[in-house]
Amino acid sequence: MPFVDKSKFFDPSTAPYYDPKTERRVAFITGGNSGIGWFTALHLYLHGYVVYVAGRTESKVLKAIEEIKEEAQKRKTTNPFGQLNYVYIDLLDLSTVPKAVAQFAQQEKSLDVLINNAGLMGVPYEVTKDDYEIQYQVNFVSHFLLTLKLLPFLQTAVLQGVTPRIVNLSSIGHNFEFKHFKPEENKLNKFPNSAYTWVRYGIAKASQIQFAKELAIKYPEILSLSVHPGVILGTELYNYWKTVPYIGFIAKGIFAAADKTIGVSNEEGSLATLRAALDPNLTLKENGDYLVTGGTIESPSGIASNPKYAQETWDWNIEQLNKRGFNV
């Protein structure tokens, strides 16, 4: 028997459907061309959302968009489909983030749902051209900047009587931040790298939870949530560890055992995100909460929950982005 109680998983069919011709709802998602992001984009499209799928490789995103449309036709529904649009963004290059927002602004004046979905996991130590550790930038900093730049569009939705939502894809891996590290320590590079890779991952994922909690305080009219989608072996996130000499053999065995016990599919992994994005039963009372596999609300680690640390993460990253000329 699996350890995950799938009977409690969120059912997307219980969420409202919208006709894009009469009641336009707009969503923006990073990394919607593969994995759980693909299924998240699919369900948003099935629910009538105008979905902007942001990614680095145009051919991959456009291919995914066509595949999502094909899959939607196979699903038995009489509800109108939404729309799917491509937006260029490279989370390894912060300069592309304002450009992506500018591209979005050419088409839309408001935004109902922002899903910071794309990410990296457990990759070797590397510093980006923007001078951040690679996992910290891709998982957190680029989404931090994207969210701040899209806030005016979310606030416009508030003026239109909608409670917009921001969803940060975190992970149970945020627990790898085994003690509090100051945000300026994101480039932590210690021996053995095979262990500290996961600590760096934990720092980035804990930061996403802290970000959601701080957004809930600073923008209480917007529902901001973080999610752990589940243990999903059918993504590209584990590829690096499967190929590492010697360790890769052990990793494959661990991943296989995890898949049989606590693993979920990509579509099941999207359900926590979909509940955060679509469930009308979630209200501003849940602002800042953390959802886990299937959409159940739980408590993250003490480090991720600490309001002092969340404020510290916010302040340092604002300072750093301003130093880099992004004016946030």
Rank of each mutant, 00 (worst) to 15 (best):
V4L: 03
D5P: 04
F9D: 02
P16L: 14
D19Q: 10
T22N: 02
R24Y: 00
G32H: 10
G37V: 09
H47S: 07
V51I: 04
R56H: 13
R56E: 11
K69H: 00
E70P: 00
P80W: 02
L92G: 05
S95C: 04
P98S: 10
A100V: 05
A102I: 08
Q107I: 09
E108R: 05
A118Y: 09
G122M: 05
V141K: 06
V141E: 10
H143G: 08
F144P: 04
L145Y: 01
L145W: 01
L146M: 15
L148R: 14
P152Q: 05
P152T: 03
P152Y: 05
Q155L: 15
Q160P: 01
Q160F: 07
V162S: 03
T163R: 04
T163G: 06
P164G: 06
I166E: 04
G173N: 04
H174K: 05
F178E: 13
K179S: 12
P183Q: 01
E185N: 13
N186F: 07
K190H: 12
F191K: 06
P192K: 01
S194E: 15
W198G: 08
W198K: 11
K205Y: 03
A206S: 15
S207N: 14
F211L: 10
K213M: 11
I217T: 13
P220A: 05
S224G: 02
L225K: 08
L225G: 06
V227G: 03
H228C: 02
H228T: 00
I232N: 02
T235A: 10
E236Y: 04
K242I: 01
V244H: 13
P245S: 11
F249S: 13
F249G: 03
D259Q: 11
S265R: 10
A272K: 07
A272Q: 05
T273W: 02
R275G: 02
T283H: 09
E286C: 09
N287Q: 11
D289A: 15
T293F: 01
T293Q: 05
G294T: 04
T296F: 05
I297S: 06
E298T: 13
S301L: 06
A310C: 12
A310E: 09
D315R: 07
N317K: 00
I318F: 14
E319T: 13
L321E: 01
G325I: 09
